[in-house]
Write a protein that binds this DNA or RNA. Structure first.
Lengths: 239, 239
DNA sequence: CAGCGTCTGTGCGCCCGCGTACAGACCTCG
DNA sequence: CGAGGTCTGTACGCGGGCGCACAGACGCTG
């Protein structure tokens, strides 16, 4: 057996779907990887309430989360999405004790978890990790800013199309399960509004949905229906 | 003359009103301070267009800036304010080449400027500076998130009150010059809307305004009129 | 002090999204 | 197969903010 194969198959150093972890050399970051535990995250799990201490950070490895800024009335408004391309706990990386947002598991799946304490300790002496996470923070910040514009300026139908595209990118499939009620919470609108917008997209043959399961039929059509915010945010990620 | 006096009066090491600069030890950061130049920034100057390279970073020393996320229609929407407590160029500190926002001088005054190149070089080898700026980035991110909620959820009158309070904090005076047209641009609403909201605040004796000059008469009253977003954002700064 | 540009006050019709409410469709489980 | 829960479709009136437009007030400048 070739030594390289051994490395790849080694259970304690699995190749990670998470882009941040995948980019780290396992050899040079042994103590970092030692702090990681795999966890399964069910739909609806709340990883962190807004303005409370972050106990852990997470590197999604097949699941997906929403970042919700809280308004007076419960529920909150989505200001960011995290999938395999990012992490939960950017604020910890920036040295803050508390998270500004509530983190909600929106797509069940597995993630790698690390205690905030271990994470801080590792970060302190790893300049290249710092740089990676700074980049991550930049993306989160710029995304929140763009979503602020989007929520204010654009019609619901365009925002829904944007949200479906962003979700699809992060779950990596053209099907996913969300009720209209849930989407309404994320976008901060009424369910009746989502119904109307989704109905319009379905009538145009862009999506199909029924009782909680959504399917993207025409991704290009959705791109055309979405506002430019989608493109602006997507380009942040691949830079 | 006491040697300490000499240091304080030394023109090349003036005490800075900017909180970030004030917190840096001049002795330990000689090469950092060497890269600073004082500049006078007139009202309306654009320091950076959205999605273009940042050539300089700025440490306001008596002036104040707006961070504007751009929408299709010109103008843009304010997603942050920067005064003496912060800096312009957080995205540079996070390792990004371009700024996600347009930066507009909203209150004329002086600032310390540094080339982005010099700044990056200094930052690379100064861990304590990195920490300070990470904190700054956290505040900018959390602020943008809260403003996203605010723009979507709250009535114009409350948002105007919040904006007046935030502005007052940063200019450090109860009087400032802004036309209703300008405020409308910042809040992303019609001038007529600002007129109505400002009229209501004036009738209640909270502010006074006329032809571009605003005065805060009753700060506590404004606090009551503003949404809770003001408090949420203010608490970010003093942590 | 006359004239002009800027800033402010106000009116009108429009429309998106809100709050609420209810009925029908579908699924699950007893 | 019937009952109950969940999800979806749709209706109705309300209201904030929009776009537009115009008149009045103010102040600078010649």
């Amino acid at each position: 057996m070739h030594p390289k194969d051994t490395l790849i198959r080694n259970a304690s150093n699995p190749p990670h779907a998470n882009r941040i972890l995948a980019a780290l050399s396992p050899k040079a970051n042994r103590s970092f990887f030692a702090g990681l535990t795999r966890v399964e995250l069910p739909l609806g799990r709340v990883l962190c309430e807004a303005r409370t201490a972050s106990r852990h950070v997470y590197f999604p490895d097949g699941c997906m989360m929403s970042l919700l800024a809280m308004a007076e009335r419960g529920g909150g408004l989505e200001v960011g999405l995290v999938g395999c391309e990012g992490m939960v706990g950017v604020s910890v990386a920036l040295g803050a004790a508390t998270s500004p947002v509530k983190v909600l598991v929106q797509g069940a799946g597995s993630a790698m978890r690390m205690s905030a304490t271990h994470f801080r300790r590792e970060l302190e002496r790893n300049r290249s990790l710092q740089r990676t996470l700074d980049r991550c923070a930049y993306v989160a910040m710029a995304t929140a800013m763009q979503i602020a514009v989007c929520n204010k300026e654009h019609l619901l139908e365009a925002r829904l199309a944007r949200w479906l595209l962003m979700t699809q990118d992060r779950v990596g499939s053209d099907r996913f399960r969300f009720t209209q009620q849930f989407i309404a919470l994320m976008l901060g609108v009424r369910r009746a509004g989502v119904n109307a917008a989704a109905g319009a997209l379905q009538r145009r043959g862009l999506i199909r949905y029924s009782r909680g399961s959504m399917q993207v039929l025409d991704r290009n059509g959705l791109l055309a229906a979405a506002c430019s915010c989608y493109e602006v945010i997507r380009q942040l990620d691949d830079a």
